[in-house]
């Protein structure tokens, strides 16, 4: 229990992950599902970046003087998550575009109503 409070970043990230996961799975509305997906992704980003954070050090940007490797946090997770954010953005855009198309064809974005309407 105590460990959960010490690693509060990770705990928060996992709780957020659970929230996103539940939203993605349990909601019927497609937009809410996509929001849940984004919350889940954000939780992973938070978790990953928390792994790279070292208390008391700076962001890895050299201003004026280079302080050596001991002066900065681990830049690798941040760089990876930058890629992850781009991927998440493109997937969100694609999912939203499909949702709009679906709304054009079916007239609703509630998943259970769509599933009831069998195709042609």
């Amino acid at each position: 229990m105590e460990r959960l409070f010490i690693n509060y970043f990770e705990t928060g990230a996992i709780i957020l992950f659970g929230v996103g996961f539940a939203t993605l799975l349990l909601h019927n509305n497609l937009i809410k599902k996509i929001i849940g997906m984004n919350i889940m992704d954000t939780a992973i980003f938070l978790f990953f970046i928390a792994k790279g954070y070292i208390p008391g050090r700076e962001a890895p940007i050299i201003q004026d003087v280079h302080k050596g490797a001991a002066g900065y946090i681990n830049p690798v997770p941040s760089a990876l998550m930058l890629t992850g954010i781009v991927v998440a953005v493109s997937i969100t855009a694609f999912a939203l575009a499909l949702t709009i198309k679906l709304h054009e064809k079916y007239g609703t974005i509630e998943l259970d109503q769509i599933m009831e309407m069998r195709g042609d």
Partner: peptide, 15 residues
């Protein structure tokens, strides 16, 4: 059906 199937596929694979 394609759009429905692709959205289902996309959401599950995002998971």
């Amino acid at each position: 059906e394609n759009i429905k199937a692709a959205l289902k596929y996309l959401i599950l694979s995002c998971l």
